[in-house]
Each structure stands twice: as structure tokens, then as C-alpha cells.
Design a protein around this nucleic acid. Structure first.
Lengths: 124, 124
DNA sequence: AGCATCTGCTTGGTATACTTAGCGCATCAC
DNA sequence: GTGATGCGCTAAGTATACCAAGCAGATGCT
């Protein structure tokens, strides 16, 4: 009873992705139906998302981000989907990574290049 | 009849996200069950994803990316979920650029690697 | 020959993301 | 007052992401 929770969290840390989206939407002076229209989702669904009942797919997140003139990275980051906790890349993984994700190379070619690269950098 | 279809597209972009994941998985010498285990998804589902029958959620994408030691951004980018209209034009000259700026390679080694790389990608 | 153990794939079901129809409340015109 | 139009939300259904169990082929071992 008594008070509800904070409805508009002070700027800074959002309780959830829904709060973030709602805040951004209100900041842009858009109604749910307007934003839903632009983002090509249904307004009830947007309501659920903002209330934290559903966690939207990446597609929808991207669409909402675009509608709000936010970068997809920002949105994913808020959604906790970009936690750069996984791969410790950088440094000497630069070349290998670039090779691995190059769509013009076959896997055999990638292995060859990486093998050569490693032989070059073995001593350093 | 005739030949197998191309399993690793020799040139051009990935036909789909599934192709990219399968290629990365094979490059890491992981079976579907192994990768599925690490990524905490079921192996049949991974099969469907690699065959392009389903488009995984961002959560799963992130998990697979981590299991393959790829950054989530790379995976999202491949999934077409990040508008890579970013400042990086590096995507196209990724390998050569990475080689050029690698401090552990001598200039001779860089030239060798780039020459091999160009021979591999000559047709594309 | 068999059995064991891989591989990837199919089937059938459950969970959840998402939509269409509609409710209740407010504001503004008439 | 009644009706029209805005808001956000609820309810019920559909589509799809995802999982557990099991199948068919390939490889290896005795």
C-alpha cells in the first residue's frame, strides 16, 4: 500500500529497459500509439514492453531505437544484450578476428592465413 | 545430383546468419552439440538456426557469440541487427588494415600476408 | 559380423513474443 | 447531456522461438 514505486526514475540508472523506453518516448512527446505506429508494432505490445512484462526481440528493439532516433547500440546496451563481458579480444586478436569474419575467405583459407600469422608472431 | 552446394561461400557475403554461425563453429572445430552445450541451447535448435529456419533471439545470439569468442557486436552486425552505418568503413578492408597496424609483424611479414590474402580473394 | 559413439537432423510439444479487438477514463466539441 | 477522439491497458488468440526425445548415417573398435 502507501506509495507506489517511482514512476519516473530520475535520470541516470533505469530500473529496466521498459523504463528507459518509456522515458525516451515521453521525452520525444510521443504517445504509445504514435511510437508503435512508427516502430511498426502494436500499441498494446509496446505497453507491455514498457511495463516490463515482455522482453522484445532484437528486431523490435532496433525498430524502436530507430523510431526514437537512438542508436541500436544504445538500445542493446540498455537491454543488457551488449555486455562486453564475453570475449577478451583486442591486441593481437585483431588480425585473427578480421580474418575469421571476412566473408570472402573460405574456412580453409582462414586456417591457412591464421597459421601463417601465428608462425610470424610466435617469437614476439 | 551434380555437386554439393557450396558449404562455405567462397566469395561475397554470407547468405545468412546461419551460414556465418556454422562457418565460425566449424572454424573452431566444434560440433553442434559442443557449441550448443557451451551456449546453453539445444543442439536441434542450433541446427535449425544454422539452416536458417529460425532467427534466434538476441539473448541466444549473444550466448552463441560468447561461446565462439566473438563480440556480441560482430554477431549482431552479421544478423543485420546493427545498422552498421557507423563511423567504421573498416569492414571492407578489415584484414589488410588489421595486418598493417599489427605491431608484432615486420614489414616483410605484412607484405607476405597481404599478398596471400589478396591471392585468396582475387576472384571476388 | 556386431556394438559403441560420434555426427547432424526430424518430430512433437511447451513457452513466449506479438497482434487484433475491445474496455475504461479523460478531454474537447456540440 | 451525447458523441467523437485522444490516452494507456486488458484479454484472448496466433505465430514463432526454443527444448526433449529419438532417428539415420558415418566412423571406429573388438
Amino acid at each position: 500500500m502507501s506509495d507506489d514505486e517511482e514512476r519516473t526514475p530520475a535520470s541516470g540508472a533505469w530500473r529496466s529497459l521498459g523504463d528507459f523506453i518509456r522515458s525516451q518516448r515521453e521525452l520525444a512527446n510521443l504517445s504509445m500509439r504514435q511510437l508503435a505506429e512508427i516502430a511498426k508494432i502494436s500499441n498494446p505490445y509496446l505497453s507491455q514492453v514498457e511495463r516490463g512484462l515482455y522482453k522484445p526481440s532484437a528486431d523490435v528493439l532496433k525498430s524502436i531505437a530507430n523510431a526514437l532516433h537512438l542508436s541500436a547500440e544504445t538500445m542493446y546496451s540498455q537491454a543488457g544484450l551488449l555486455d562486453n563481458s564475453g570475449p577478451r579480444d583486442e591486441s593481437h586478436h585483431g588480425v585473427e578476428h578480421a580474418i575469421k569474419v571476412d566473408p570472402r575467405l573460405t574456412n580453409d583459407q582462414k586456417e591457412s592465413l591464421i597459421r601463417i600469422y601465428r608462425s610470424f608472431t610466435a617469437g614476439s
